[in-house]
C-alpha cells in the first residue's frame, strides 16, 4: 500500500504478498560447468588419443624389438649348432695339439672281493702303504 493510498484512506485494490526476497539464481554457472566439462572431455579425448597413439607406437616398437630378438635367437641357435659340429671341433682340437691316440691299452681291473670292501681291511692296506713311505 502506497503512501498516497494511505493519505486518501483508500484500500488498495491489489494486495502485495511478500515474496522470496532472495535474488533469482543465475543459470550461467551451469553453462560454465558444462563448458568446463566439455573442454575437459575434449582435451581428455585428445590426450587419450595421443596416449593411445603413443602406446601404439611403443607396441609397434616392441614388436619390432621382439622380431629382432627372435631373429637373433635363431641366429645364435644356428651359431651354437655350428660350433658343435664334430668336424669343426676336430679341427680346433688338432690346432690345440691334441691327436687321437693310435695305440690304446685296455686296463683290466681285477674284481674287488667282499673282504676288500671291509673298512678294517682297507685301513690295514692304507697303513701298509703309509708305513712303506720314507
Amino acid at each position: 500500500m502506497t503512501l498516497a493510498h494511505q493519505q486518501r484512506g483508500e484500500q488498495p485494490s491489489l494486495q502485495v504478498i511478500p515474496g522470496n526476497t532472495r535474488r533469482p539464481r543465475t543459470k550461467i554457472s551451469h553453462w560454465v560447468v558444462f563448458a568446463l566439462a566439455v573442454t575437459i572431455a575434449f582435451f581428455g579425448l585428445i590426450y587419450s588419443r595421443i596416449s593411445l597413439d603413443h602406446s601404439a607406437f611403443e607396441i609397434q616398437e616392441l614388436e619390432e624389438q621382439i622380431a629382432i630378438q627372435e631373429e637373433l635367437h635363431w641366429q645364435l641357435r644356428y651359431e651354437l649348432a655350428q660350433i658343435q659340429d664334430p668336424a669343426l671341433l676336430e679341427g680346433q682340437i688338432a690346432d690345440l695339439g691334441m691327436i687321437y691316440p693310435d695305440q690304446r691299452v685296455a686296463l683290466s681291473v681285477p674284481v674287488v672281493s667282499i673282504d676288500e670292501l671291509d673298512p678294517d681291511y682297507r685301513w690295514a692296506q692304507l697303513e701298509a702303504i703309509l708305513s712303506a713311505q720314507p
Binding site: 631373429e71 635363431w74 641366429q75 641357435r77 644356428y78 651354437l80 649348432a81 658343435q84
Partner: peptide
C-alpha cells in the same frame, strides 16, 4: 637336441 637343420631369417 643339437640342430641338424634349422631355418633362420
Amino acid at each position: 637336441g643339437i640342430e641338424l637343420a634349422i631355418t633362420v631369417d
